[in-house]
Design a protein around this nucleic acid. Structure first.
Lengths: 181, 181
DNA sequence: TGTTTTTTGTAGCAGTTGCTACATTTTATA
DNA sequence: TATAAAATGTAGCAACTGCTACAAAAAACA
C-alpha cells in the first residue's frame, strides 16, 4: 500500500471514530479535519468532496457494525429472549453510538437521498440478516417473519432510548410476552 | 386579539405548514421567512430568536397532531387490528409529514437537547395515550403494556417507511399474528 | 542526479448562518 | 391631535459553509 493510501485509510478510521462519538450534526469540513488531525484542504484532497467523504466514512462505520455483529454471534434464542438481549445491547456504550448515528441517518435517507439511503438500507438489511440467523424458530417459515418483527421492535427501542425512555421498551417487552403466553 | 398577536399567529400557522412539508432540514431564517411571506427580520421580531421560533412552530405542529388523533377516535380494536390500521395510517399523506418531522426530531432530542427533547416527549406520550385509549383488551392490566408494544412497533414502521421499505412492516405484522395465534 | 508526481500549506472566494443597529412608517393611546 | 409604542425596511456584521487557485515542499521515479 502506497503512502497516500495509508494516510487516507488512517484518516478514514479517525473520521469513523469521530462520527460515532459526535454524530453527523456539526460534521463540517474544518471541525472534522481538526478532529482527525489534518486540514479541510487535505480532506478534500483525499476524498474529493464532502459527499464522498461521508459515503466512505459511513461505509466504514457500517462495516464495523457488521464486524461487531459477526463477533457477537451467539446460540439461537427464541424471540422474546432475543428481544430482551437486544434491548440491553442497544444501550450498551459500545453499541449506542452506532444506533445514534443510525437515527441521524434515517431522516437523511428519507426520500431516497443519496448516499444516505443506500447506506441506511445496507445497515437495515444487515441487522435483519443477523437477527434471522440468531432466531430460534419452530418452523423455518417463521424465520423471516419473526426477524422482521424483532427488527421492528428493536428499531422502536432505539427511538425510545434516544428519548431517554426506559419504561416503554420494558412495558412493550412485557406486553409481548403476555400475548405470546 | 391585537394586530401583532394576530400576525404572529398567522405566521405561526404558515411556519407549521412549511415545517410539515419541508422538514427541519434547511429551515434557516431567510428561506423560512420567504416561505411564509415575511422577512427574517420580522421572524425575529415576533419570536425573539430561532430557538423560540422552532419551539412555537413545533408545539403548534404537535397540537395539530393531537387534534387529528382526537378527531380520528374510533371504536376499540384488538392489538393486531389496530396495528394493521396504524401501519396504513402512518403512510397516509395527511399523517406522513408528521411522522417525517418526528423522525427529524429524534436525533435532535437525543441527549436531552432543548427544546426538542421536551417536544418529542410530549408527542410520544400523546401517541401512547391515544393508543391505550383505542386498544381493546381482555383485562385492564394489559392496556398499558400492549399500548407500549403497539407504539414501539409503530415507531419501527415509521422508520421503515422512511427507508421506503414496505416489506419489513408487512412481515412483522404477519409475524406478530403468527405468534399470537 | 534530474524530473515528474504526490502531498501539503496559505489564502481566499462566494454563499449562508443567526442576529443587530439604525431609521422609518404605521398604529395605538392620552 | 400630540405622543408614545409597535411594526417594518435596509444594511450589514462576524462566523461559518464547501471548495478552489496558487505555490512550495517532499517523495517517487528515470
Amino acid at each position: 500500500m502506497k503512502k497516500g493510501e495509508r494516510r487516507r485509510a488512517e484518516l478514514l478510521e479517525r473520521l469513523a471514530d469521530h462520527l460515532l462519538t459526535h454524530g453527523l450534526q456539526g460534521a463540517s469540513l474544518r471541525p472534522l479535519a481538526a478532529a482527525v488531525g489534518t486540514s479541510d484542504r487535505m480532506l478534500l484532497h483525499y476524498f474529493g468532496d464532502k459527499e464522498e467523504l461521508l459515503t466512505a466514512s459511513l461505509t466504514l462505520v457500517s462495516q464495523r457494525l457488521i464486524t461487531m455483529l459477526d463477533a457477537a454471534r451467539l446460540e439461537p434464542l427464541p424471540i422474546d429472549a432475543l428481544l430482551t438481549m437486544l434491548a440491553g445491547m442497544v444501550k450498551d456504550p459500545h453499541v449506542r453510538p452506532y444506533m445514534r448515528l443510525w437515527l441521524e441517518l434515517l431522516p437523511l435517507a428519507a426520500g431516497g437521498q443519496a448516499p444516505f439511503h443506500t447506506i441506511a438500507q445496507r445497515i437495515s438489511a444487515t441487522l435483519r440478516g443477523w437477527i434471522a440467523d440468531t432466531l430460534q424458530v419452530d418452523t423455518e417459515e417463521q424465520r423471516e417473519l419473526l426477524a422482521a418483527l424483532t427488527l421492528t421492535i428493536i428499531e422502536g427501542f432505539v427511538m425510545f432510548d434516544a428519548l431517554g425512555d426506559d419504561e416503554v421498551p420494558a412495558a412493550a417487552l412485557a406486553g409481548l410476552k403476555l400475548k405470546m403466553a
